[in-house]
């Protein structure tokens, strides 16, 4: 089985918003990042994948199984960290472990204890007194202690300070080394996804617009800085987010490989400069292009 997660033509209708024709394929052992602005439909997509909301149409297959027949087995093999961390607030980590572990077939208390120690979480303090960062760490500890094959993360670093964000990203990079774990992670913090993802999907207004291997995506998208009238004819029209200034302009293209040949002269003369773009530049271009 090539894909650990396969979603085809998912549709979810809300009043005023529709998630339409969403297809996702997640290759085993890879990290896929889902990027999109707030309200694009990332959380809805993840909740559909987790079977936490009901789809209007489409199919979801995880590990080759479907929710209708195999929900328990699927969730036994999935680790999930949501944007909001839900725990029984008056309980401690000890109680939470006792509660959660009873549901999983392959819960490993040693792994859980190791994470609690690594994250320096107080085992006997009530969860209602935890900070957001502590709750996120606890969520990761819970999500990873039953040896999941697929980790689904919905904006895991949103609202965290840079230190905890870095800790979480380091953890994800560490997990990336274990090739048996696949990760599907949504975020609007593009820097985070740039660091960890192998594959990137862009979602805007309830649709996935791009889904591509990160390196290929970044090779295709470039920022062109050019002096006035230095671009060959027709090229400027193909640029997005064009910013014209007195001594030079810039624009972004997703067809750099096609136009590279025609830009060589200008590049040699120093009238045109080509820069790599960040994932957020692409996001802004896509949002503006919609």
């Amino acid at each position: 089985m090539k894909y650990i997660l396969e979603a085809n033509n998912l549709r979810k209708e809300y009043q005023g918003f529709t998630l339409d024709n969403i297809s996702i394929k997640l290759v085993r052992g890879t990290i896929t990042g889902l990027i999109g602005p707030n309200g694009a439909g990332k959380t809805t997509t993840i909740k559909l994948i987790m079977n936490m909301i009901k789809k209007n149409s489409g199919d979801i297959s995880i590990f080759g199984l479907n929710y209708k027949n195999d929900e328990k087995e699927m969730k036994n093999r999935i680790g999930y960290v949501g944007e909001e961390q839900y725990f029984y607030q008056n309980k401690t980590i000890k109680w939470t472990e006792k509660f959660v572990s009873g549901f999983y077939n392959n819960w490993d208390s040693d792994i859980f204890s190791a994470f609690i120690e690594k994250f320096q979480l107080p085992a006997n303090k009530k969860i209602k007194n935890f900070s957001k960062g502590m709750k996120v760490k606890l969520s990761f500890a819970v999500a990873l202690s039953h040896n999941p094959e697929l980790l689904i993360l919905d904006e895991p670093t949103s609202g965290l300070d840079p230190i905890i964000r870095r800790e979480i990203l380091d953890l994800l990079l560490e997990l990336k080394q274990k090739e048996e774990l696949s990760v599907f992670v949504s975020s609007h913090i593009t820097d985070d996804l740039f660091r960890i993802s192998d594959h990137i999907s862009y979602m805007v207004n309830g649709k996935i617009i791009i889904s591509e291997v990160k390196d290929e995506l970044l090779a295709r998208w470039k920022k062109i800085n050019y002096k006035p009238d230095s671009l060959p004819e027709g090229i400027e029209k193909k640029l997005m987010n064009v910013e014209k200034q007195l001594f030079g302009s810039s624009g972004i293209t997703d067809k750099y490989q096609e136009m590279a040949g025609s830009l060589i002269t200008g590049i040699k003369q120093g009238d045109i400069k080509v820069e790599n773009v960040g994932l957020d530049d692409i996001l802004i271009s896509l949002v503006n292009g919609e």
Partner: peptide
């Protein structure tokens, strides 16, 4: 309701 119990169960392997 106060603890989002159904959300917690929604994540766990429970039908």
């Amino acid at each position: 309701e106060k603890n989002n119990g159904y959300e917690i169960l929604g994540i766990l392997p429970v039908t």
